[in-house]
Nucleic acid binder design. Structure first.
Lengths: 244, 244
DNA sequence: ACTCTCTGAACTGTCGACAGTCGGTGGTCG
DNA sequence: CGACCACCGACTGTCGACAGTTCAGAGAGT
């Protein structure tokens, strides 16, 4: 059941219905038009979207593999609920990915990569002045995706892309996400400097700090009503300086 | 088109058809009854399995998310082809995962975990005397899955499970996989010792060496007809001692 | 009033069928 | 003899429908 009326539910047409339905569902879930834990009725969705149940089912399978839905046999698909442990897992896995990506990129870092990443941070700083929070988040994720893209491991990039959906879900959990966007954007400069230094240890420390800040930010924003306390591996970061 | 006649294609029945079809396809692909690159006809599969196309399509979507199939719109599903770059990516991603899992487990390693892992290596040594290569590989993967299970991050475990399918595919690429199973099994003792030491650096070195050996083993087994040469991050391992 | 049972509505899992598209084949033209 | 084009078969994408199951609520019994 939608908690809020789902956004417009535009009649989809032609082919590639699966992808269109998946996009619609992804956006609706991240925007929290479907509350966590609620069941998504196949018939209801197919009626609202004006398509049959087959594309809806396939799209739901896709979202399940991305961690946005879970399917219970004979019960249907449910919007994924994230508790404190889930948040910790997501950011711990992200730490795992980013450490590796930065390590890979550090050894092949060149002027072109430097320029590309710097350009992206400039864009983020520019966006920080505006009020479109969605674009700020996307620009932030795009910086990190650039790192994975240039790191050279396609499967690592795909893994990050998959995790990105859950990351957006995590960020949408709290309202504090959008505070101090300027400082958040500037927080990415040390990552570039660490890459430029070419030193693995320095990259690792910068990544650990950066992700740690983002993790604490989201978890604290959740109100601390999370599951078991679990220290993050690597450097802890408890300041309030950034998000991503 | 099947290169070899697909194994029996047992008539599936009742519910949970998607999972059954997915299991059948997974096994058939890893056993190379479907050659890499071939197109899997939905109608042919549904006829052979005695089910309709809907479960076949959903199962194919599932395998696509696991990297065993790729779908091209209006063309159908194709068995994934792995070149040298793919192998390098898979093992590099595995290195990323295992490093993190061992680091997580090292800080919570206790007597129970020690006993469980040791037990598994004993099992592997026992299986090494037999001739069932499939069970050797599964026991090997099970050791590593145990590590991920005990590491405590469920999403990391799921990520490894997903990658496992591609790992099996990689291992099935060459025949040399099954050589010297006794030494391969024994190669896992240093990992346990590193965990017991509780030292992160020692764990990392042990993992890097272990995975490096496995990677070189598979890539050399492919005949070196791979893509661009790419050095593995971390310790290189060029000996011939192990697989997993 | 509370609990258990039964009934029925709604839904999921699965199926067969239709429409549009892609690739190959045969024929025709230059 | 070679290249282009129309036709045809097969397949994918999508749809509506049926069967078995689950869940909620009404009703009977205690």
């Amino acid at each position: 059941m939608p908690t809020d009326s789902p956004p417009a539910a535009p009649r989809l047409q032609q082919t590639n219905l699966v992808e269109q339905v998946a996009d619609y569902l992804t956006e609706a879930i991240i925007a929290r038009h479907f509350a966590p834990g609620v069941r998504l009725s196949e018939v209801q969705l197919s009626r609202d979207l004006g398509v049959s149940r087959a594309p809806v089912r396939e799209a739901a399978r896709l979202l399940e593999s991305r961690g946005l839905l879970i399917s219970r046999p004979r019960k249907g698909f449910f919007v994924r609920e994230l508790n404190g442990d889930d948040l910790a897992d997501v950011f711990d896995l992200r730490l795992c990915y980013e450490r590796h990506a930065f390590e890979l990129l550090a050894v092949r870092f060149d002027e072109a990569a430097h320029a590309q990443l710097s350009q992206q941070v400039e864009t983020m700083c520019e966006l920080a002045k505006g009020s479109d929070d969605g674009r700020k988040i996307e620009a932030d994720l795009r910086f990190h995706r650039l790192v994975f893209d240039m790191a050279g491991n396609r499967r690592l990039l795909k893994a990050f892309d998959d995790l990105s959906h859950e990351l957006r879900l995590c960020m949408a959990l709290n309202e504090r996400t959008h505070a101090e966007p300027g400082r958040i954007a500037a927080n990415h400069w040390p990552l570039i400097e660490a890459l430029a230094s070419g030193k693995a240890q320095r990259c690792r420390e910068a990544v650990d700090y950066h992700i740690g800040v983002a993790r604490d930010y989201v978890i604290q924003g959740l109100g601390g009503a999370s599951g078991t306390e679990r220290p993050m591996s690597g450097a802890g970061a408890t300041s309030e300086e950034g998000r991503c």
